[in-house]
Amino acid sequence: MDFTLKIWRQKNAKAKGKFVTYKVTGISESSSFLEMLDVFNDQLVTKGEDPVVFDHDCREGICGTCSLYINGRPHGPDDAVTTCQLHMRKFKDGDTIVIEPWRSKAFPVIRDLMVDRQAFDKIIQAGGFISVNTGGIPDANAILIPKADADSSMDAAACIGCGACVAACKNASAMLFVAAKVSHLALLPQGKAEASRRVQAMVAKMDELGFGSCTNTGACEAECPKQISIDNIARMNREFLGAKMGSQKKKVVAGGF
């Protein structure tokens, strides 16, 4: 298969970027999107040009490192997959493919298609620790957890922190990511001890980093490769409201009401 690629090229964080149009030829329809870019980069290097920089690591949809905003959709035209799992057979031979980096104030472009997603790490850090007993391995059933809660928690924990939710959202809001992280702990007894502090601190950090506010458009849920549901956002709103209403007058957590 042959394609026309319109790719965002930007030398570094400070430089002004622009779209450059390229041709790529001889792509197998069963190659992944990233493999297509590998072949393309080979062709570029042979011509003596700089390869296109993009993020990737596991290439099996579990690490959340790959990104790319492809033809108007994060992780491209397929549902519930990451870019590394997107196959070229999802495109038609001769298609023009526009490839952009995630666009968000909180995710500045480092180079070409690679963005800095440290903002997510900072939110996780703000969430802090959970209290557990050290020592011997606890008995499997020592803590009783309803199956439904364990399942919902597991679903939320499937978030790989890729940032597609931010990329898809018209408000560049990180609510789905933060909600997933708040939810998977809030649903379990192990997460209860710090639940109130955690949700307040994580939301405060999210606001501070310049992500937008959720307007419940549902774009994040539609584009999330792990199909995290916006039910988690409602849960976080609930957790947050409860935590703020019940918190003491003297502040233990940074951030306002």
């Binding site: 319109k6 965002w8 779209f19 905003y69 033809n71 108007g72 959709r73 994060p74 035209p77 526009v98 952009e100 666009r103 968000s104 104030k105 909180a106 898809a168 018209k170 408000n171 560049a172 809001s173 310049g210 992500f211 937008g212 774009a219 539609a222 584009e223």
Partner: peptide
């Protein structure tokens, strides 16, 4: 929150 907009926008 999104100072640079997308070229191809909003097919989600």
């Amino acid at each position: 929150a999104r100072p640079v907009r997308y070229k191809v926008e909003g097919y989600s």
